[in-house]
Design a protein around this nucleic acid. Structure first.
Lengths: 149, 149
DNA sequence: TTAAACCTTCATGTGTACTTCAAGGCAAGC
DNA sequence: GCTTGCCTTGAAGTACACATGAAGGTTTAA
């Protein structure tokens, strides 16, 4: 598959794919006889992984370091696991922050005033609701949002 | 409160606060007799809101348009609501993408091989797990992660 | 009264993550 | 044989979101 097809398949621009290869976010790509990139499914999966991590807010630099460790020949399973664990924590915190922002907007939508400033009382109620939510994790699917999770 | 205190209170740099004011992400800030910014809790809340939306991935430009509509004198409650709804959808999708990436990493962590490439079979299993998760929303708190929500 | 520690505006610099441009090569169809 | 459409590398340009620097003002403390 040439770079254009790979671009269409992944939604990542050709230039970005070249850039990712140069930055070692994906492995060196095989070339055809005339020097064109010949992209296989392994590369496609790596591009998809990079896209996912980028969307999760990981910088190119961190992602490069990250991948470097995983691609190394040495068996550094321990470090790899703790690195994964670390990244997972970051992403979970990010997800929770995002959820808090979603709750905030949902609150605004449900208690709609004529301006968007959140008052002290509203903030206190939000905090209360948040505490409730964390406390009684049993009572899921309360009423407000169409949560997918 | 002066800009430095506001900066410490919000975790946003003084330069960024000035920038936000210039870009109308926060309302015009009152000045003291000598021309220094005098920041009150209303501004602090707005800065916090901006921070939250920025962390949720909203660009300065979109945030500006967004806030503009809310601050307008006219009663455009309908448009405001649909704008909120729209932004909520974007954020929920982002959260779900993030969750998918978290699931992916969790999977890697639990089925640890000597490299990080996800195979076709693994991807298929991930998809299957995801389908399960969506299907039986009742069986919450499965086993894998320390979800806050 | 002079230094420290704040502040102001305006202009310019910076890092990230690409995008775009320039110059050229290969293969197919007219 | 020439245009079209793909590709290559390398260099330079761009957008965003601030950070930093210059030049100057005010207040407090020694």
């Amino acid at each position: 598959m040439n770079i254009k097809e790979a671009s269409e398949k992944t939604g990542v621009s050709s230039a970005a794919i070249r850039y990712y290869e140069k930055e070692s976010l994906i492995p060196p790509i095989d070339r055809t006889a005339v020097g064109n990139r010949d992209i296989d499914d392994r590369i496609i999966r790596r591009i998809t992984f990079v896209t996912q991590m980028r969307a999760a807010g990981m910088s190119i630099e961190n992602l490069r370091r990250y991948i470097e460790l995983f691609d190394a020949q040495e068996d550094n399973t321990k470090e790899q696991k703790s690195l994964l664990q670390e990244q997972l924590s970051v992403m979970e915190e990010k997800r929770d922050d995002l959820q808090a922002a979603i709750d905030h907007l949902n609150y605004k939508l449900n208690h709609f005033y004529d301006h968007m400033e959140t008052t002290e009382e509203e903030l206190r109620e939000l905090e209360r609701q948040h505490a409730d939510k964390v406390a009684q994790k049993t009572t899921e699917d309360s009423d407000e949002s169409n949560n997918a999770y």
